[in-house]
Nucleic acid binder design. Structure first.
Lengths: 347, 347
DNA sequence: GGCGCGGATGTGAACGTACACATCGCGACA
DNA sequence: TGTCGCGATGTGTACGTTCACATCCGCGCC
């Protein structure tokens, strides 16, 4: 005699079927149903089938909350992101989402509105309140590390698109290498006066690209000039261009991303300068539109999706207790199009 | 005598503090702590303070899983999305995320890889397995409605950026109106032979823009020609342009989005045609880069963020049981830049 | 033929919270 | 002064699942 029969019938209140309902229909105990749900071995094929039929018949779905409560595993991976409207982060997140879902994890994404410490902390706080099991950071990372320490985030984490500082937890396209490739390309075309428009200073990847740029210039014994600190937007590239082109003491520009390159080319047109006739320009990212800019943009391609997939693979490995967390940086690729040409003489 | 004292001490196993731990520290019952957490009235200020201090001291965080279990409310809103890397969806999602978080909801986003029924169903299935309380759809909607019916999704939902078919559940920028504005602008400039490059047929918004285009043309008694069905990408716009421009029996193009407009302008350059001298082009969306295209693109601005915010507001209202779900479409805005000019004579 | 063993299945308890209800104390009112 | 009402707080229970342990059965072995 089971206790289930004593439960009063509630005709109005429709309750989702639970594990005991399934058990009753299948004629087994609820524990057996649980075993079926968790792919436990040692179940008679006949029993297995009966339980599966009962599940289908009732349209039963396991209650994730109850599972999470008893196992104290949320099966959630947190993503702390900034600027998710941009092509790079968006592509990575999409890959992360797919990979996570396949591994039975869900994602909790939160956008931070500014790179201020308070904003980062509040985003992190939000994610921790959801008991995420791991953390992926796609954001200006300089202050994020502080926040992760301060909040005693006790879960595995990786940062995307960063480089250098904390290689144990970073997964990255080799930004320095990419920047060097872009710069070397310009040098090889005979440019000696090269300008760099960088991303915001607190983005590690902006910093890395700047480093690559400066190192390559140093290796070639060329004059280095202070990079302009931008904000990744096309508008910034445009206004920076209007300003810089008044002097015209350079023949090439390496932009921190494709958007700023686009804005800069706009400024060139407006100043009556030809790209690449007067000014050569290289971007970074290879957004899908870059091939159709005027002129089509020479740029550095990053495999954002690959980075996303690797992030999940790395975290899952760590959650499983694996210790071999080696990860080579993803290599970027220089895509040569029509925005670069041999250096013109400075007028 | 409480039972807590009987619990054996486990020094190695660190357990997150729970509501009873807080109660013990604050010297109250766990129910009082629960009341504090849920902003219940009728708590003595002094007691309130003691509980809050205890919470801070222990670093206590409510266990969401336990909450979800007992209330049978997941506090999760599902987002079924496609093409999240695009500017429009990405912007909307960001706004949704912010609004949801402010309202105490989290988001579960899933991308569908194709617009096939199986893919939609599997995405929907995934979201339902998370017991989402409401659903936001940003995807090709034609088949989504079928899937929502088939799966007996018993939760409130809205579709974004759609129009027409199911106005009860749709929240939209008035795409028809936007398309009419774009088309009328071209007509007013004297263009009579106007081409339309549309988005994929199964996107309702593509359909709506096409409808607006055709209606405006009809109202002006102009010849209508079969729109080209594209895929939203710049590359498609480019190749379509190369093909179409061989005939040059039109002087203006209304593109379904800014990316296709960009690709088309690229094709114009390659064919030696001037924009807007020979061909006028209007886009749709007003992505941030559009102002820096060559030439800066005349386009229809949509307030994606507003749409996202409204979606959450609408769903929260429905969850609260409000019945007044009236929602006016968001009005788009024509942004006139330099890619349109008076019609040239056809050569 | 008794005993041990392991495969298959069942029972009790716990996870952390919110809801329904019970209790306590105190002031107002008849 | 007794009682009613209400503000403030405490106790029991349920949510749906998994884990640890218990039980049952049949088979092989000495």
């Amino acid at each position: 005699m089971t206790t289930e029969t004593e439960r009063p019938i509630e005709p109005d209140r429709v309750r989702a079927p639970n594990i005991r309902d399934v058990a009753r229909v299948a004629g087994v105990s609820y524990q057996t149903v649980s075993r079926v749900l968790n792919d436990s071995p040692n179940i008679r094929p006949e029993t297995l089938q009966r339980v599966r039929d009962a599940i289908d018949e009732l349209g039963y779905r396991p209650n994730q909350a109850a599972r999470a409560l008893v196992t104290s595993r949320s099966r959630t991976i947190g993503v702390l992101a900034a600027q998710t409207v941009h092509y790079g982060p968006a592509t990575s997140i999409q890959a992360i989402e797919t990979a996570a879902r396949e591994a039975g994890y869900r994602l909790s994404i939160t956008n931070i509105s500014s790179s201020e410490y308070a904003s980062i902390k509040s985003g992190l706080d939000y994610l921790m309140s959801q008991a995420v099991e791991a953390l992926i950071v796609i954001a200006p990372q300089v202050r994020v590390f502080e926040a992760i320490n301060d909040l005693q985030v006790g879960v595995p984490f990786v940062t995307l698109e960063a480089t250098g500082l904390s290689s144990d937890h970073s997964l990255w396209v080799d930004q320095v290498q990419g920047a060097r490739m872009a710069t070397r390309h310009l040098i090889e075309l005979g440019h000696t006066e090269i300008m760099h428009i960088s991303g915001p200073q607190d983005w590690i990847e902006a910093e890395a690209r700047m480093q690559g740029f400066l190192r390559e210039l140093g290796d070639a014994d060329l004059r280095t000039r202070a990079p302009i600190l931008g904000d990744w937007t096309a508008s910034f590239g445009y206004y920076a261009g209007l300003e810089l082109l008044r002097y015209r003491d350079f023949t090439a520009v390496f932009a921190g991303n494709d958007q700023m390159a686009l804005g800069f080319m706009h400024a060139c047109r407006e100043m009556g300068l030809s790209v690449p006739g007067d000014i050569s320009i290289v971007g970074f990212d290879d957004v899908p539109e870059a091939a159709h800019f005027a002129p089509p943009l020479t740029t550095v391609r990053q495999n954002f999706a690959e980075i996303g997939r690797r992030a999940i693979a790395l975290l899952l490995g760590e959650l499983r207790g694996e210790t071999d967390l080696s990860h080579d940086p993803v290599q970027p690729e220089l895509i040569i199009r029509e925005s670069t040409a041999r250096a013109s003489r400075l007028g």
